[in-house]
Each structure stands twice: as structure tokens, then as C-alpha cells.
Design a protein around this nucleic acid. Structure first.
Lengths: 166, 166
DNA sequence: CACTGGTTTCAATTATTTTTGAAAACAAAA
DNA sequence: TTTTGTTTTCAAAAATAATTGAAACCAGTG
């Protein structure tokens, strides 16, 4: 396998994994393409690199910027925009956590809080109440742990441990 | 909000969250329905409860059993099957981790290993190699941590800590 | 101002995923 | 064996998500 094949395989597999996790496959492929690119790319280079339309490229590049995984760069004298990916993998993980926590964990917690209002007039044995209570406890723990992790940055493991044991 | 509304809301929101994470929405709703049900349900009760077809109910019940989140139960004298969900939330989390790790993390790691073969003839500066190297390191760490977590069960936090600091 | 090189938008199309429902398969009971 | 109650399968239909591409837009430049 040469470098070119390797890149290709990496891009495909990054896309596959993303779509397993409910993230648009093309968005992940654009991300992968930028990750392995030695320099920032233009929208046209992304289009060519992945054989996708201008609209598609644009949408997914914007989404990646929204996730904080890709940034724009302007080259002096040039009119077009260049895009490059954040390559520090810890930062990447961190951004993904921030984004998905906000968009998915937090709304779920909100619903659980609402639903938990019912608990008051719940007989202790009622399975619904127990399940909600358990999931809520777990989610809150996850929420706090992720908050700590987000703030913690590189020395995360010791802070996470502190979070977990209390 | 009464109990019935609460259950409804919980089922909806569990389904929504699942589909955000690339899991079939109906599968998660069946799971939620069984989680909040005081007793085991028949396929027909699931169909009615969620207004879905027999085929759909059957498929998703089987998938849940495959994930280890739901079990069958036979009542003596009765011919039909009853289904009930595992309600210990730690076990639920554990099963989900086991399943997704096997189906998603492991294949990704395999690809990374293959792709990493290229590294040999990579100049140190080559961004592709660095990215692959970093992701691989991270995934392997995640893989090991999850293994430890899966084995660790309830006293997980101290074992995970041990895993993380080394 | 009008032109040029670029980006963004979004209705229509295409691809993918999920669901249906009727037929087939099964297995316990008659 | 046949009947009956049940589960399973899977091709076709429906629902959902992603993609295209052309028009609208935007901002420097002449």
C-alpha cells in the first residue's frame, strides 16, 4: 500500500465510522481529507478530492467549522478561502465532546428533569420511576465528568479521576 | 404531567437520542417501552404500544436481544413469548459498550493498523503519518480502557484510573 | 457602475434507511 | 396428520437523509 492508497483507505474508514455514529459520512470524509492534507485546501480541491458537488463541499465545510474542527485561512493576494483541520487529536476529541454534549446529552437531561417531576407521586416500586431515576443519575454524572474533561485539557486523567471518585 | 405522559415523553426522547447516535429510533423506543413496563410484554403489546407493524416489532426485539439489552421469558401454559429489558443501568451501559466497541471501534483499529504499515517509508514530517499515528494511539488507549471497563463492572472507576495513568 | 471570481442557498433529485404486511415457517395441540 | 396460534422473513413501499447544480449573492477591481 502506498501513501495515496493509505490516505484513501483512511478517508473511507473515517467516513464509515462517522456514519455509524450518526454523523454525515461526507462531513467526516472532508474532515479526514483535511487531516491528511499537508496544507490548507480550497473548496475546489475538496470537491475534486472527494468527487462531490460545490454545494455539498460548502455545506460540510461550514458544518466542520461550526463543530470547531476546521478553520478558514486567507492567503494574502488571493481571493479564495483555504481550509485546514485542527490536527491535535486531543483538541479534536474535545471539540466533538463539546458539540455532541450540547446538542444531545443536554436536551436529554432536560427531558429527564421534566419527566422526573412525575416521581413525586410515584410509589417507590414503580419501575418507571426507578428507571428514570437511574438514567438521570447516570446522565448527570456523565454530564459533570464531561464538563470536567472539557475544562481539563491535557492533564485530564487526574481530574477525571477526581470527578469519578466523589 | 401524569405517569402516562411521562412514559410517552421518555420513550420519544430515548428514541430521538438513539437516532442521533446512529441507532435505529424504533429499536430504542421498544427498549424504552420495555424499560418502563412493570412486567414483560408480548410482541403484540409492543406493536400496540408503539403503533408499529409485527415485522418491525419482531426485527427490533431480536436486535435488542442481540445487543443483550432484552431477554425472552416463557410463561408456563402460554404459547407466546414475553420480553423484558435489563433494568440495571450499569449493565445496560456495559452491553452497549461491548456491542459498539466490537462493531465499530475494532474494525476502525484494524484499518488503522493496515494503514499504519505505510508509516515505515514516511518522512517524519508527513502529516498523514502523524495523524494516523495519533489516532491510532488514541484508539488503542480507548480500546484498552473500554476492555478494562467491561471487565471491571461496578468498581470501575478505580480500575479505569489505573488504566489511564499508565 | 459593471465585471469577475468566488461563496452560499435551496428546491428538486437521488440514495439510503426503515417499515410494512402478507406469505412462509414453526411448533404445540387436537 | 391437521389445525391453530405464533414467530420469522423479505420484497416492495414509504419515509428520511444527503446531494446536486444552477441561480442568487457578495465583495474586490477596473
Amino acid at each position: 500500500m502506498d501513501i495515496q492508497e493509505g490516505k484513501q483507505k483512511f478517508i473511507e474508514s473515517w467516513g464509515k465510522m462517522a456514519s455509524d455514529w450518526g454523523i454525515n459520512r461526507t462531513m467526516a470524509q472532508v474532515h479526514a481529507l483535511l487531516l491528511v492534507a499537508p496544507d490548507a485546501l480550497t473548496a475546489d480541491e475538496v470537491m475534486d478530492g472527494l468527487s462531490i458537488s460545490r454545494g455539498n463541499a460548502n455545506m460540510n465545510l461550514r458544518a466542520l467549522i461550526d463543530w470547531g474542527l476546521v478553520h478558514k485561512k486567507l492567503k494574502s493576494g488571493e481571493r479564495k478561502e483555504y481550509f485546514y483541520a485542527e490536527k491535535d487529536m486531543w483538541k479534536v476529541v474535545r471539540q466533538i465532546i463539546i458539540h455532541r454534549k450540547k446538542k444531545e446529552l443536554e436536551p436529554m437531561l432536560k427531558v429527564l428533569d421534566e419527566v422526573a417531576g412525575v416521581e413525586a407521586n410515584c410509589p417507590q416500586s414503580e419501575s418507571f420511576c426507578n428507571v428514570v431515576k437511574d438514567i438521570r443519575k447516570l446522565s448527570q454524572k456523565a454530564d459533570k465528568t464531561l464538563d470536567t474533561l472539557i475544562k481539563a485539557d491535557s492533564s485530564w486523567f487526574s481530574t477525571i479521576f477526581y470527578q469519578m471518585v466523589r
